[in-house]
């Protein structure tokens, strides 16, 4: 079991180094950092000085090592455009994105599993069929259209919910939260629905098909032959077995919620990391772009590590045997 976790830690490390290399390469290939920082009119001497000061004359491996060491300590350099430390820009935007993404993930997971289980158990019921049909829309409709649609209905027509921004936020240390004010909570509703909907439909369809598959397994048949009540078979025996493949696939997808947040944040003018990144791209603000890239990779690695841990917790076959198999 420890070996299993260790292996996935190693995999995560490899992924992070690979992504770090890409992020590092951006500095060299996307624009010229010296020009970016000094502007076109700087003298040759100024440029030479800055080049030396930034260490751009050092060998590439040394530069990369320095980049990794700095990044590991949370130092991503100075934003070209805003002249502030990238790390503080990120910390400022982080709470908005984390609150949006985590709530969306919870929404997608809880509702997705509930509907998926329902659709599997009541396979032929009309509600199950309706839910399945609606889920097809979720799979096929682009996120921004869902967002715009929701804005049109709930913000423009019904005027129930705000269409942009986070509303009022409360500061707790360096963290700003929208969870403690009414306007903050109201502002979360549409973005969370928008961001979570695609994942919800994917999880729901996955749960349904996995559960139908599990319900055909021999041990379900045997449980029936033992006289176990159907509810127990569904929720004790089938559901837990369903969750193993679902956790693996859905967990990785939820990592994608952060990445997909870019679109949602743009549609709702959400002051999160995605919006920060979109701005950075517009102005070729390489330090911000590369930091964002590292952040997304980190989130993916973290979620897949979490998935592996949950996986081990759910499946005894992955935990080492405490007993010697008897012959």
């Amino acid at each position: 079991m420890l070996a299993y976790i260790l292996r996935s830690l190693m995999q995560g490390l490899v992924v992070m180094i690979a992504v770090a290399f890409i992020a590092f390469s951006m500095f060299r290939f996307v624009g010229d950092p010296v020009v970016n920082m000094l502007g076109q009119e700087a003298t040759l001497q100024d440029r030479a000085e800055l080049t030396e000061r930034l260490g751009l004359n050092d060998p590439v491996p040394l530069q990369f090592a320095r980049f990794v060491a700095d990044a590991a300590q949370g130092d991503f350099g100075i934003s070209y455009r805003q002249g502030r430390k990238v790390s503080s820009l990120i910390l400022e935007r982080l709470p908005a994105t984390v609150e949006l993404a985590v709530l969306s993930a919870i929404f997608a997971f809880v509702v997705g599993i509930a509907f998926g289980v329902y659709a599997a158990i009541r396979r032929d019921g009309w509600i199950a069929n309706l839910v399945m049909s609606i889920s097809l829309i979720g799979v096929s409709l682009p996120t921004f259209l869902i967002g715009i649609g929701l804005i049109y209905i709930f913000a423009v027509e019904l005027r129930w919910l705000p269409s942009f921004g986070r509303g009022d936020t409360v500061k707790i240390g360096w963290w700003t939260t929208g969870l403690l004010t009414v306007s903050g909570l109201k502002s979360l509703v549409l973005p969370v629905l928008t961001l979570g909907f695609l994942q919800l439909t994917l999880i729901m369809r996955l749960v349904r098909s996995e559960m139908l598959e599990v319900m055909r397994a021999d041990f379900i048949r045997f449980a029936r032959a033992r006289g176990i009540p159907e509810r127990k078979i569904e929720f004790r025996h089938a559901l837990r077995n369903t969750m193993i493949p679902v956790i693996t696939i859905a967990g990785v997808q939820l990592g994608g919620v952060i990445a997909f947040a870019i679109v949602t944040e743009t549609v709702f003018q959400w002051p999160g990391l995605g919006a920060l990144f979109v701005n950075a791209v517009q102005f070729v603000d390489v330090p911000v772009m590369s930091a964002y890239l590292l952040f997304v990779a980190f989130v993916f690695v973290l979620t897949s590590l979490l998935v592996d841990i949950v996986y081990v917790a759910l499946d005894p076959r992955l935990r080492g045997s405490a007993l010697v198999p008897a012959k």
């Binding site: 021999d218 041990f219 045997f222 449980a223 032959a225 033992r226 077995n241 193993i244 005894p316």
Partner: peptide, 20 residues
């Protein structure tokens, strides 16, 4: 009645038990 008055043993013990 199943399990109480009629018991059943299946062919494949590897898949008859819930692995979890």
């Amino acid at each position: 009645l199943r399990g109480k008055r009629i018991g059943m043993i299946f062919q494949d013990p590897l898949t008859s038990l819930n692995p979890l």
